[in-house]
Computed example of a mutant assay.
Amino acid sequence: MAKLLYSATASLDGYIAGPGGDMSWLTEHLGGENPTAQRLLANVGAILAGSGTFGGDDPNRGTDKEGAFGGQYHGPVFVLTHRPPAQPRTDVTFVGDLHSAVAEAKEAAGDKYVNILGANVAQQCIEAGLLDEILMFFAPVLLGDGIRMFNHPGGTTVRLAPIPGETAHWYSVLY
């Protein structure tokens, strides 16, 4: 059965996007060989994104690398939103509640990962006890402001355990 994985690239101070969702900072840190990212891509069976992430900035906008995983992902995409577009795309499924979105994405992913894109959806999955793993890549930059990879002021601590044999910063979520 599919596992839910939150993966993202963050600045060293923990931001996955700059102010207003700006992703342009990431452009200079993309490219090059990353065996972990390539292995992850090969094991993603579906993507679950929030509407802000889905409709937000893309550091590769306007290039052949636009889209998830630098334009390399070609599979089912589910968007969690309470406001689906009036003219939905045929290659994207818009779902109105978290549990239905997770169930549909897991079914589509089969025995591969459902890759969560977006801090808000990842936080909702953690709060619901649904997230299985977290994989973070870090770019050598300090943004100082923006969208944090996880932001839950006053929330409880989320314990993580390194996954044996995996790359640094790939963890199981402990509930």
Rank of each mutant, 00 (worst) to 15 (best):
A119F: 03
H169Q: 15
N120Q: 15
F69S: 01
Q87E: 15
L12Q: 12
T157E: 12
V92D: 02
D132S: 11
G71P: 01
P85S: 10
H152D: 08
V92E: 02
H29A: 04
E33N: 14
T36S: 15
V95K: 02
G118S: 10
G154V: 05
I16F: 07
G14F: 01
S7N: 13
I126S: 04
G146Y: 05
A108F: 08
L142G: 02
N120E: 13
T63I: 09
W25I: 07
H152C: 10
G62P: 05
P35H: 12
V121G: 00
P153H: 02
G55N: 14
Q124S: 12
S7G: 12
T167W: 06
V158L: 03
A109Q: 03
G18A: 07
P76Q: 12
W25E: 05
R148W: 01
V141I: 14
L174I: 03
L5Y: 03
N115T: 15
S172M: 10
D132E: 13
L131G: 00
A103V: 13
P153T: 02
L40N: 04
G21M: 02
Y171Q: 02
G18R: 05
T156D: 08
E66S: 10
W25F: 07
E133P: 09
A42Y: 02
N60R: 10
L80F: 01
F54E: 00
S100N: 13
I163K: 04
H82M: 08
G71S: 00
G146H: 06
P59E: 09
D58I: 04
S172T: 12
P88Q: 11
L130H: 05
V173E: 04
V95P: 04
M136W: 13
G144P: 09
A105W: 00
A122G: 08
L41H: 03
F78C: 01
P19E: 06
S7W: 07
T90A: 15
F138D: 06
L4G: 03
G21E: 03
D58G: 07
H29L: 06
I16G: 04
R39P: 12
L143W: 04
H169P: 10
F138G: 10
F150C: 00
D64C: 11
A139H: 06
D145L: 05
E28A: 15
L117V: 14
Q38F: 12
P19Q: 03
E107Y: 15
A37Y: 12
R39S: 14
Y175K: 13
L41D: 00
H99L: 13
S172W: 08
K112C: 15
V121N: 00
T27G: 06
G20R: 07
I116F: 06
D145A: 13
A49F: 01
V44Q: 09
F137R: 14
V158K: 00
I47D: 01
V141R: 06
